[in-house]
């Protein structure tokens, strides 16, 4: 009988009890809905917002990410917030960075958890109502014998 890799993996994990009960993950649709809640009627565009994340994360427990939005910041024109979503985590929300004119530069970095390989999405809201987004796919590897 042909035992493919996936079956072997599932059976192996099942046997040693790692799968447990099936977990509910967020979906791309959940993230889309959350972005709509931020954007309202505004069109979501790409360009000035950059999300940095590694292509491959060695451990999903601690994945470094950073966001930046190009452009001058003044008292009347600044980036209000950048929200990070993950479309394959149990919950899609990760963090919202709230900037002010005193931030000087719309840059922020943190480290986040990723339950599996998935898309990380950043959504920026500017004081003039502009909404920007950027997406990176991060592959989360599974460790050696220890998992």
């Amino acid at each position: 009988m042909n035992l493919n890799r996936r079956k072997l993996l599932v059976r192996t994990l099942g046997t040693i009890g790692l799968l447990g009960t099936s977990k509910v993950f967020a979906t791309a649709e959940d993230v889309d809905a959350a972005i709509k809640a931020i954007a309202g009627d505004a069109e979501v565009t790409q360009g000035a917002l950059t999300l940095n994340a590694p292509e491959i994360a060695e451990n999903g427990n601690s994945v470094p990410i950073s966001v930046s939005v190009d452009g001058e910041i003044s008292d009347d024109s600044y980036v209000e917030s950048v929200t990070i979503f993950a479309d394959g985590n149990p919950r899609p929300e990760v963090i919202t960075f709230n900037f002010t004119p005193l931030s000087g530069e719309a840059f922020a970095a943190t480290r986040m958890r990723l339950a599996k390989t998935q898309n990380v999405i950043a959504v920026a809201k500017l004081s003039d109502g502009t909404v920007l987004s950027d997406t990176r796919n991060v592959k989360v590897t599974i460790g050696g014998c220890g998992g």
């Binding site: 985590n89 963090i95 919202t96 931030s103 000087g104 986040m112």
Partner: peptide
């Protein structure tokens, strides 16, 4: 805050790693 005025803040969900790390800028 800087001298009482807000500079930067975050709303944080459980997907942020243990021992939370933040980097940001201030003018």
């Amino acid at each position: 805050t800087f001298n009482g005025t807000s500079v930067f803040g975050c709303d944080i969900d459980p997907a942020v790693s243990a021992n939370p790390f933040l980097e940001f800028r201030a003018k």
